[in-house]
Amino acid sequence: MSEAIERFFDSLPSRAPAVLRSTVAGTIQIDLATGDGTTHWLVRLQPGEAEVTRARGPADAIWHSSEDLFDRLVTGRAQAIAAMLRNESTFGGNVVLFLAFRRFFPSPPGARDPRDIVRAQAGRPR
């Protein structure tokens, strides 16, 4: 298990109040496959809260991914929806949980919010 993945899951409870502002609630089981096995994470999401355990269990959704892809997701080098569309990972169950969970992933390195660019340009004379 990469250190980036461990830090990502460790950070979820403290980051949840800023990320989970909607009424989404449910449990996602995340299965990360490596060459010699699968690591399981169970993430319970509630408005403003996230609880993380290394377990399998009853879940509203299951996400299967390679550990390598998930490492790229948690470091901003890959995008979750694009990975799903390319069949690099699979997701079954309540898709709203996936859409809420993906907000925990960072933006790609060097990415800027387009609104910030427009604001900066609006302040400059042409």
Rank of each mutant, 00 (worst) to 15 (best):
R56P: 06
T75D: 00
L69H: 10
L99S: 13
I28G: 08
F70S: 00
I30Y: 04
I117D: 14
R126F: 11
R21S: 12
I5M: 01
I5A: 03
F8P: 09
A100S: 12
P17Q: 02
P13M: 03
A122W: 11
L20W: 08
R119D: 14
I81C: 00
G76K: 07
T27P: 04
V43F: 10
P13N: 11
R72K: 11
A61C: 05
R21I: 08
N94V: 12
L73F: 05
N94E: 14
T34S: 15
S2K: 07
H40T: 03
I30M: 10
P109F: 00
G26Q: 11
S65A: 13
P13H: 09
I62E: 14
M84Q: 12
S107F: 13
D116K: 02
A83C: 00
D116L: 09
A120H: 13
A111M: 04
V95I: 14
P106L: 06
T23C: 06
S22K: 13
A122C: 06
R15E: 14
A59K: 01
P17E: 02
G92N: 13
D113W: 05
P47N: 10
P13Y: 13
D31A: 15
A16G: 04
A82Q: 11
V96F: 10
V96N: 12
V95F: 15
D116P: 00
A78C: 07
I62Y: 04
P17T: 04
E49C: 06
L85W: 11
E6H: 13
I30W: 08
D71C: 00
G110T: 03
R126I: 11
A25E: 12
A83R: 10
F8H: 06
S2R: 02
I62F: 03
E88S: 01
R115G: 11
A80G: 09
E67C: 03
V96D: 15
S65Y: 04
L20T: 01
R103A: 01
P125R: 15
S22E: 15
P108T: 05
E49K: 15
P13L: 09
R7I: 02
I30K: 04
E6I: 14
L42I: 06
A25L: 10
V74M: 10
I30D: 02
F105Q: 10
P47Y: 06
L85N: 13
P17V: 09
L85A: 11
R77V: 03
